[in-house]
């Protein structure tokens, strides 16, 4: 479903602030695979997701989604294949618009937008049904402006919006990190429910090692713009969160000492 080869991205190239964010990254994901991504701050996780979604243009390499080369396809066209949920609950929804308007925008993903009514009765009943399954009472608040909702409600809505028109690829970037301890597990549960139900190919960035192992069926560790660990199957099943942390730190030190020797 997703094929990435030799992907490269440098920010501020040629200046004093040059940052090599992604350096020759390769990744292949089969349809229905759910991979979690871990890695220290600045490892390039968000940059990778932005490159896949088309928010950034790469400096080199290739990205294929569903057998199609999308490396330089504009973000809004790629969006027909990619659903996203961001860390900041404010980013995924249009705050000044109502719940139903936001959902209608997401429903039209990949379709031609014309002069038909933006929200009609049929959509409303569909939205009510989907919102009802969230169990947050949002089905009563179709006409409420989204910026009156809580962060958890907004993130649940974004989750629904990202998957309303089934995407080929779902990208989640620390999408529970800004939520309070009550809302976060609810969004986590919702994520598993939707991803499993729809069998979505998913990449989820998290800083929670336990979650990285518990959710999905593959775990990737990133460091300095590369994937340095790729766990799945039995190997992953036998890895505990503390082992993962240990490998994380040892690998970091290894790379650091390499750098001191050769850098």
């Amino acid at each position: 479903m997703l094929e990435i080869s030799n992907l490269r991205k440098t920010f501020n190239a040629g200046t004093a602030h040059q940052v090599k964010a992604i350096s020759g990254l390769n990744l292949s994901m089969a349809a229905g695979e759910f991979a979690t991504i871990i890695g220290s701050n600045g490892a390039g996780k968000s940059t990778l997701l932005n490159l896949i979604a088309g928010a950034y243009q790469p400096d080199g390499g290739r990205i294929n989604i569903a057998e199609r080369d999308v490396t330089y396809t504009p973000e809004y066209i790629r969006a027909t294949q990619v659903g996203r949920v961001f860390q900041d609950p404010l980013l995924g929804t249009a705050g000044a618009m109502t719940v139903e308007q936001n959902l209608a925008l997401a429903l039209q993903r990949g379709k031609r937008r014309g002069l038909g009514w933006g929200v009609d009765r049929q959509m409303r009943s569909q939205f009510r049904e989907r919102l009802n399954s969230l169990g947050m009472g949002l089905e009563q608040r179709l006409g409420t402006r989204v910026n009156l909702l809580s962060g958890g409600q907004r993130q649940a809505l974004t989750m629904l919006m990202a998957t309303l028109a089934r995407p080929n690829l779902l990208l989640l970037d620390e999408h529970t990190a800004a939520l309070d301890p009550l809302a976060a597990p609810r969004i986590t549960a919702l994520t598993e429910q939707i991803v499993v139900q729809q069998g979505l190919t998913t990449l989820m960035v998290t800083h929670n090692m336990a979650m990285a192992l518990a959710m999905g069926n593959r775990t990737l560790m990133m460091h300095q713009g590369e994937i340095i660990l790729d766990l799945s199957g039995a190997e992953r099943a036998h890895t505990s969160a503390s082992e993962l942390v240990a490998r994380f730190t040892s690998r970091n030190q290894e790379l650091l000492s390499d750098r001191m020797l050769f850098g």
Binding site: A53, A55, P74, Y76, G92, L105
Partner: peptide, 9 residues
């Protein structure tokens, strides 16, 4: 950002 991510040019 949201507009582009739901496929709006």
């Amino acid at each position: 950002q949201m507009a582009r991510s739901v496929g709006i040019n």
